[in-house]
Design a binder for these strands. Structure first.
Length: 414
DNA sequence: CCTCCACCGGAAAGCCGGGTCA
DNA sequence: TGACCCGGCTTTCCGGTGGAGG
């Protein structure tokens, strides 16, 4: 039997990089938020009504991912609750992520459960859940701030819930409710009932992306807690910030980059994190992303992609829609899948282009027609190994080489 | 200058699984 | 429960096209 305790201790002791890695995760809400004072103050000035026993206006918050929307709301919400407690004025902030809780029923059930009501996962009429929730909160004089993060995800399934929540105050005697909606899509309100839209958008806050300098401050602040002193090379944080700033000023990406850089350094038992680790991290993140994208592709698209891998192993790097379609058809027969039309495959290829997995250019070869010229944009072996994970395509791995020979003989004849 | 290749890409309709409503 | 609807995927049909070769 292995000495497990010693094993873990050894691993822990060998980590000379991270002091507290949790700080670099998205879920962490820091003690203060650099470069968000303006937004914090605006939000606080709206929510302060709650401490005066009034109903705060509803707020819509817009901003791209990684601009600190959620962190700011969490932060201000926490301060509000703390202050309320101190002054003995009950204020509660209910945070709901609509990407996970994405139906009217589940939102109401989750809210009601926060007030200790027992609601079954499913089965009750929605009205009943609603009134259960209403009674739960109306039991005493209090202010409730309901935060609906990623609210656009909820709206796709109908705005009834928003309508109900936005007019709930008229059915309450003692409690007060106000809503905060968070969205990264500015246009989502277009699909709303005008009444809901105006009620929800009483106040609006916009979170601009961070620039490189701001990101640097954010990273520096977190790095201090996350890393041991002196393990970060001086140019690591500027590099991470600059790279993330190029890419839409997303603080989440910057933090990921920093964390992965540290993980890589740790794995290779390096004493310090250097610029080269950051560059490796970019590659790893990029690669993981590509793998994930390919993995979640429909099987048909994977087959098309696999055909492209085979084609690209041949002499020339680029190939046409027609060539891809021919190979694709043969692969379909091999694995016993339905053959889609060329029109459809053409669309699948466009999607792959959009995803950045391939590059396509429409070229005219005069007499020999007009077609897309396609090049693979990712490593062949990565594509092949991920595609072959698909259980319907397993049989291809054996076929691969013989097939390659056959393909070569066909193309050499032409 | 015209032809004609090999495909592009829009429009519309069919199919299918899932959800809704009376 | 069955009628109905919806959205995603796919097929069918078809007009459109840049440029090598005649």
């Amino acid at each position: 039997m292995m000495d497990v305790t010693g094993f873990f201790e050894k691993m822990l002791a060998s980590s000379r990089i991270f002091k507290n890695k949790e700080v670099l995760r998205h879920s962490y809400t820091p003690e203060n938020l650099p470069h968000r004072n303006e937004q914090i103050e605006s939000l606080a000035s709206i929510l302060v009504s709650a401490l005066k026993g009034e109903t705060p206006s509803n707020v819509m918050i817009y901003g791209k991912t990684g601009t600190g929307k959620t962190a700011t709301v969490r932060f201000v919400g926490r301060e509000l609750e703390k202050t309320g407690e101190r002054l003995n004025i009950p204020c509660y902030v209910c945070y709901i992520n609509c990407e996970i809780i994405d139906t009217q029923y589940r939102v109401l059930a989750t809210l009601a459960r926060m007030f200790d009501r027992n609601i079954p996962m499913t089965g009750w009429p929605t009205d009943q859940v609603y009134s259960e929730f209403r009674m739960a909160i109306d039991s005493k004089d209090q202010t409730l701030i309901i935060v609906l993060d990623e609210i656009d995800k909820l709206v796709r399934k109908g705005d009834e819930i928003l309508y109900n929540l936005s007019r709930i105050n008229s059915e309450l005697d003692r409690a007060r409710v106000s809503l905060i909606g968070i969205s990264n899509d500015v246009r989502f309100t277009e699909y709303l009932d005008p009444r809901v839209r105006s009620s929800l958008g009483e106040e609006e806050l916009v979170f601009p992306p961070y620039d490189a300098n701001q990101l640097r401050d954010i990273l520096a602040q977190r790095a201090e807690i996350a890393f041991y002193d002196g393990v970060l090379d001086d140019n690591v944080i500027p590099l991470c910030s600059a790279l993330a700033a190029q890419e839409h000023g997303d603080a989440r990406k910057a933090l990921d980059l920093l964390r992965v850089s540290g993980e890589i350094a740790e794995k290779e038992n390096s004493e310090i994190v250097e610029a080269r680790h950051v560059r490796m991290a970019i590659e790893k993140i990029e690669n993981d992303h590509v793998v994930e994208v390919i993995r979640t592709l429909p099987t048909q698209s994977k087959l098309v992609l696999f055909g492209m891998v085979l084609l690209s192993r041949r002499g020339s790097r680029e190939f046409t829609t027609g060539e891809v379609y021919d190979v694709y058809r043969q692969l379909c027969r091999r694995v016993g899948m339905d053959i889609l039309t060329q029109r459809r495959i053409s669309d699948l290829i466009s999607e792959l282009d959009l995803l950045g997995i391939v590059n396509t250019v429409i070229v005219s070869k005069g007499r020999y027609g007009r077609t897309r010229e396609i090049t693979l944009n990712v490593q062949r072996n990565v594509v092949a190994s991920v595609v072959l994970e698909d259980f319907r395509l397993r049989s291809l791995s054996k076929v691969d080489l013989q097939y390659q020979a056959k393909l070569d003989s066909i193309t050499s004849q032409v």
